[in-house]
């Protein structure tokens, strides 16, 4: 993902067609951290035998949340994912909302290192974690 303006929580998801199609909601955005959640929906199911949502949908949530965290840095004018690794700890419980929290834990001139965790209602046992490297275009360079 990649955006050019500093995001406004109300319009951030609306500006990303794929995030909107997956029913994502921006819950929090500030100074290098973001929280985005996604409701359970039948079209997101990856295993029809169990009703568990597809890992790819969790990936899209993580990618969007990490990108949002980068864009929430005051100096960020744009970002793109360099790489993203997702560890799937357990299947998300069918019917429950999945909430992702991302945090920029190191920022260099051109790269931001981001970590994220996704949880369902059983918050003590994460569904997935992610680590990624993102590009950052700085406002003064744009």
């Amino acid at each position: 993902m990649s955006t050019e303006d500093t995001p406004d929580p109300g319009t951030f998801i609306a500006a990303l067609p794929h995030a909107r199609a997956l029913g994502m909601r921006l819950d929090r955005l500030e100074g290098g951290a973001a929280e985005i959640s996604m409701g359970y929906a039948p079209e997101l199911v990856g295993d029809p035998a169990t009703g568990v949502i597809h890992g790819g949908a969790v990936s899209a949530l993580m990618d969007t949340c990490c990108g949002a965290a980068v864009m929430s840095l005051p100096e960020a004018a744009g970002t793109a994912t360099i790489d993203l690794r997702i560890d799937y700890m357990r299947p998300a419980t069918p019917g429950q909302r999945v909430r992702a929290e991302a945090q920029c834990y190191h920022v260099t001139r051109s790269v931001v290192f981001v970590r994220a965790t996704a949880r369902d209602d059983d918050a003590a046992r994460p569904v997935a974690t992610a680590t990624g490297a993102f590009t950052i275009t700085r406002a003064e360079d744009a």
Partner: peptide, 15 residues
């Protein structure tokens, strides 16, 4: 993902 480029969302590519 970004309609201004426009580019596929990284999440769609990953999925």
């Amino acid at each position: 993902g970004d309609p201004r480029l426009p580019a596929l969302h990284g999440g769609a590519t990953s999925a």
